[in-house]
Design a protein around this nucleic acid. Structure first.
Length: 448
DNA sequence: CATTATGATTGGTT
DNA sequence: AACCAATCATAATG
């Protein structure tokens, strides 16, 4: 234990038995061999200090504090400190608001993560969603999104709180420590302040990390949900079935009214949820129906030939549906709902022949062509199909280029399609007679 | 991995 | 406001 005393004495930088208080720079110069040994001991003790228990250290500290020379030593320390001029003027580095942090903050605020409580939390999202579609129907995804977002929010807040608490704790701890130390060494309030600042900076960097990862999470969530509008999910088979049925049965005027759209949407959704997946939230909205018809119209018009098969299929299908009770499957192999492709092809060629005959024999068919324009288009169609004219580049709406002859059957051609790139406003009554309900008559025609 | 199909978006038109 | 035409982006397909 004497060694302790020794240590303390020498640690003060002064030899307590000497009267010269300050001899720091020249400590070795005045060293005698005996002292060397002493120094070695001291160093050894210093090295071993970490192995000492807290109590031991505390005791030592206490010993130091109670040392009679302590005030003198303290003043010496003050002096040294003054001299070294470590006046820490570098504490004026007022942190500039860090653009990155501001960016993060802004974003978190905008996303409703760091903003006010849950109520208006998803304001940005609400705007985004309502701007997209009908705004009402995508409430499923929306609520899902909201749930996930509030989850992120909660995590964020709890983490943030944790950090803040830890920071506070640590800061007060350090301050206490410094205050305690200020008894044995000079610690200016400014120094404490600086220390606190350093701590806070450290913690704020952790916070930035938190904010960053939160932002990331939100972004991911966003791209998962909101930008899922860009993410295309194919409609179910049944849904496209229904839509196609409507489209081809109203081929002369494929513009469903608002009510019709609603009904279609409903039907599609119901069918979907009933048959395939109730969960997936695969409900089809009115705007989706509108999109579908928009796409369909334009794509149909653009390349009618490509859709002939489909057209015939659905026409036949609706015909069959319409003529349910009848026994009209005498020669027609396409009586079933799911007819095979070859059967269908056969049917098509047969139809074509019929049509050819009808046209070239003076159009004595049972279906009445509406206008000269229709005849024109039909004939053109046939010609092009026979000549196998391949001009896919022609974007003109008038040139109805068929990709191959077989599909060129204009039987269910665009009766209402005029040459100007739009469906002529075929009125409903006419459509009732010929192209739509006419499909049933056509069917009887083909089966004859 | 290239191509096609298809739902969604955008910008302009009527 | 509905629609068209072009375009985007992704799913399905070969």
């Amino acid at each position: 234990m004497e060694e302790h005393a020794h240590l303390m004495q020498t640690l003060g930088g002064v030899t307590l038995n000497g009267l010269t208080p300050i001899s720091l720079p020249g400590i070795h110069e005045s060293m005698e061999p005996a002292n060397k040994q002493e120094i070695g001991d001291i160093l050894h003790q210093i090295m071993a200090i970490t192995d000492q228990s807290l109590d031991e250290a505390q005791a030592k500290k206490h010993g130091l504090n109670c040392h009679r020379m302590k005030p003198a030593l303290f003043s010496v320390l003050c002096e040294i400190k003054e001299k070294t001029g470590l006046s820490l003027r570098n504490s004026q580095d007022e942190e500039p608001p860090d653009p990155q942090l501001m960016r993060l903050d802004n974003m978190l605020l905008a996303e409703g993560v760091s903003g006010p409580e849950k109520g208006g939390g998803a304001s940005a999202i609400t705007i985004a969603t309502t701007a997209v579609g009908g705004g009402a129907e995508n409430s499923i995804e929306h609520s899902d999104y909201k749930a996930k977002l509030s989850q992120i929010r909660n995590i964020y807040h709890s983490e943030l709180e944790k950090y803040q608490q830890a920071c506070e704790e640590f800061t007060s701890h350090v301050m206490n420590l410094l205050r305690e130390q200020s008894r044995s060494r000079p610690v200016s309030p400014r120094e404490i302040e600086r220390m606190v600042k350093i701590i806070q900076r450290k913690f704020s960097s952790i916070q930035i990390q938190l904010k960053q990862s939160t932002c990331e999470a939100v972004m991911i969530l966003r791209s998962r949900f909101l930008d899922a509008r860009r993410k295309r999910r194919n409609f179910s088979k049944q849904a496209t079935e229904i839509l196609n049925e409507y489209f081809y049965s109203h081929l002369s005027n494929p513009y469903p009214s608002e009510e019709a759209k609603e009904e279609l949407a409903r039907k599609c959704s119901i069918t979907v949820s009933q048959v395939i997946l109730m969960a997936k939230g695969s409900t089809i909205t009115v705007s989706q129906v509108s999109n579908w018809f928009g796409n369909k119209r334009i794509r149909y018009k653009k390349n009618i030939g490509k859709f002939q098969e489909e057209a015939n299929l659905y026409a036949a299908k609706t015909a069959v549906t319409a003529a349910q009770g009848q026994h009209s499957h005498d020669s027609s192999p396409s009586a079933g709902f799911q007819m095979k492709d070859e059967d269908f092809q056969l049917d098509v060629s047969e139809d074509k022949n019929n049509l050819l005959n009808n046209i070239f024999n003076g159009s004595s068919g049972s279906y009445s062509l509406q206008s000269s324009g229709e005849i024109f288009t039909n004939v053109t169609d046939l010609n092009s199909s026979f000549l196998s004219t391949q001009d896919p580049g022609a974007g003109q709406t008038l040139s109805l280029n068929y990709s191959d002859g077989l599909r060129g059957n204009p039987l269910y051609g665009p009766h209402g399609l005029n040459g100007n790139g739009g469906w002529s406003d075929a009125l409903t009554p006419s459509s009732v007679t010929s192209p739509i309900e006419g499909t049933s008559s056509i069917h009887s025609d083909t089966s004859n």
